[in-house]
């Protein structure tokens, strides 16, 4: 692993020495210097000029893959910002996000009847005194079999709460970073498939050793026709727009597939929030706020 990393750093340095235009660099690399790859292979590396460039941690370089063949083809490399895609993995923040996502939409409908709601029990069962029995006022008191329940669950109980803004923000960066570190995040050029057969997608997932459950994220609201049709019958392969990205779904699916545009949009949005004044968003959440 260490040797491969060294190799990667040699590769990066070689690219950096080329001094090409900052926006999009297309650099052809003679792989004679790199022993493992085949001769005269070209790699497209997408370098970016961020408004807030990373200082200490180096940007992550991720392969851009294709979807139009079952076999994986590497179309190039993309640089991703380490504040979003290489954040420290905080399992506790992921956990709090998952708990929040489970709870904020949960309304508990568990319900029990109180002594007033159970049928009957209006009459005093026996006189207060003189029988040698314990005093009771109703046969539906919580002490009786078949009586009401004291402090039981009452239906329509909301478990809604709002997680603090920065926990939600770092939940996304942490999960994306953890997914990338575990090789569960893949970036594809686009979502164009040659067929609309589900089997094609199943083969592709099998061939590339992606986990069975795959979450595909695109930056548009409408995915291309073929992939929509192919995933329609596959319950474990789902498509989502960028604004639907959330921690729970990322963890529920084994593999996260982002289109290149989606990856950049996520990066842009999260970097914006990481570098702006969020005091309005950090205020206490009110349900009736406009």
């Amino acid at each position: 692993m260490k040797s491969s990393l060294n190799m990667a750093s040699i590769l990066i340095n070689a690219i950096k020495r080329l001094h090409l235009s900052p926006q999009i660099r297309l650099c052809s690399l003679n792989s004679a210097a790199v022993t493992t790859t085949t001769a005269n292979k070209t790699i497209n590396i997408l370098k970016k000029e961020w408004e807030f460039p990373p200082l200490y941690t180096k940007p992550r370089e991720v392969w851009i893959e294709n979807l139009d063949t079952v076999e994986e083809k590497k179309l190039g490399l993309i640089e991703l910002h380490p504040m979003v895609y290489a954040a420290p993995p905080r399992i506790d923040i992921i956990h709090s996000n998952v708990i929040w996502q489970r709870k904020y939409r949960w309304v508990s409908w568990a319900h029990t009847k109180t002594r007033a709601e159970v049928r009957g029990g209006g009459k005093k069962p026996w006189p207060q005194k003189g029988l040698g029995r314990a005093r009771h006022g109703s046969i539906r008191s919580p002490l009786f079999r078949g009586g009401g329940v004291a402090h039981g669950p009452r239906s329509g109980k909301s478990h809604f709460f709002m997680l603090p803004f920065h926990l939600r923000l770092h939940g996304l960066t942490t999960t994306l970073s953890a997914k990338l570190a575990q090789d569960d995040l893949h970036i594809v050029k686009d979502l164009e498939l040659p067929t609309d057969e589900s089997q094609y997608l199943v083969d592709l997932i099998e061939n590339r050793n992606w986990g069975p459950a795959v979450l595909i994220i695109d930056d548009t609201d409408y995915a291309p026709r073929n992939i929509t049709a192919a995933t329609d019958n596959l319950l474990h392969v789902n498509i989502m727009p960028v604004y639907g990205l959330n921690v729970y779904s990322m963890l529920k699916h084994d593999t996260l597939v982002l289109t290149q545009a989606a990856a950049e949009k996520i990066e842009e949005k999260l970097l914006y929030h990481l570098h702006s004044d969020n005091r309005e968003r950090m205020k206490k959440f009110k349900i009736d706020q406009v």
């Binding site: 408004e51 807030f52 914006y272 570098h275 702006s276 004044d277």
Partner: peptide, 8 residues
Amino acid sequence: LPFTTIPK
């Protein structure tokens, strides 16, 4: 209008 991000 307010700053979008904190100015550099």
